[in-house]
Computed example of a mutant assay.
Amino acid sequence: MQAVLKCPQITVIRPQGCLNAVNALEFERDLTTALAQDHTSSTLVVDLAEVESIDSAGLMALVSALKLAGSLGRSLRLSSVSASIRIIFELTQLDRVFEIF
């Protein structure tokens, strides 16, 4: 479903396809694992370049991971958000919650 890249201070997760109710729990588990396991990395970047669509379950997985990152003193950021996905973040006002690059 995704590739995970690690740099000394950054972990990058690259989900692909659709982030929806079918795979949101798996996606959230992957985010949680990345945040909980790697204490040397201070930032988790979710690269959304290959994501075609996202629904409320996918958004909730991201929000849950953002809360966990905050409680662990780490940051979660989004990158390569396509125009169609960015509209969803804007409509839900989550673009004000997430750091998007």
Rank of each mutant, 00 (worst) to 15 (best):
F101D: 13
M60A: 11
D38T: 11
I87K: 09
K67Y: 09
G58R: 06
L44H: 02
K67R: 15
R96H: 13
I85P: 00
E52I: 07
Q2T: 08
Q2E: 12
E99A: 12
R77S: 14
V45L: 03
S64M: 01
L31D: 08
A34K: 03
Q2D: 13
L94R: 04
T40E: 13
L25R: 04
L19S: 00
R14Q: 10
G58P: 05
M60C: 03
Q16Y: 13
L78I: 00
T43V: 15
S75T: 14
I100H: 04
T92N: 07
A34I: 01
L78H: 03
Q2G: 07
S82T: 06
E52M: 03
A57Q: 05
C7S: 15
D47E: 00
I54A: 00
E28T: 09
I88V: 08
L68V: 03
F98R: 07
E26W: 11
A36K: 10
L59D: 01
S71G: 09
D95K: 00
A49V: 14
T33N: 10
L31Y: 11
V12C: 15
A3F: 12
L66D: 00
T40K: 14
I100M: 06
N20H: 10
L62W: 05
V12E: 09
T33I: 07
E50S: 04
N23Y: 03
Q93M: 10
R96I: 04
L68M: 11
E50H: 06
A3K: 04
D55V: 01
C7P: 01
A61I: 02
K6M: 07
L76A: 01
L35P: 01
L59T: 01
V12K: 05
A49Y: 13
V81I: 15
R96V: 04
Q2W: 15
L94H: 04
E52K: 07
R74A: 08
A49Q: 15
P15Y: 02
I85R: 00
L62D: 02
R74G: 03
E52L: 10
A36P: 04
S82N: 12
R29L: 15
L91P: 05
F89P: 09
A36D: 08
R77D: 13
R14T: 10
V46H: 00
P8V: 10
E50V: 07
Q9L: 12
D95S: 09
P8G: 15
I87C: 12
A69Y: 03
S82H: 14
T11E: 06
T11M: 11
A61C: 06
T40Q: 14
D38E: 07
S84E: 14
V46W: 01
R14P: 06
E99W: 12
E90L: 08
K67V: 06
I54K: 01
C18I: 08
E50K: 07
L44A: 05
S80R: 08
V45R: 02
H39A: 12
Q37W: 09
V81L: 05
V63D: 01
S53A: 15
E99Y: 13
P15K: 00
A36R: 05
D55N: 03
E50M: 09
V51N: 04
L48H: 08
Q93W: 12
Q16F: 06
L59K: 02
A36F: 04
Q16A: 15
V46C: 02
V45D: 01
E26K: 10
P15I: 02
Q9H: 11
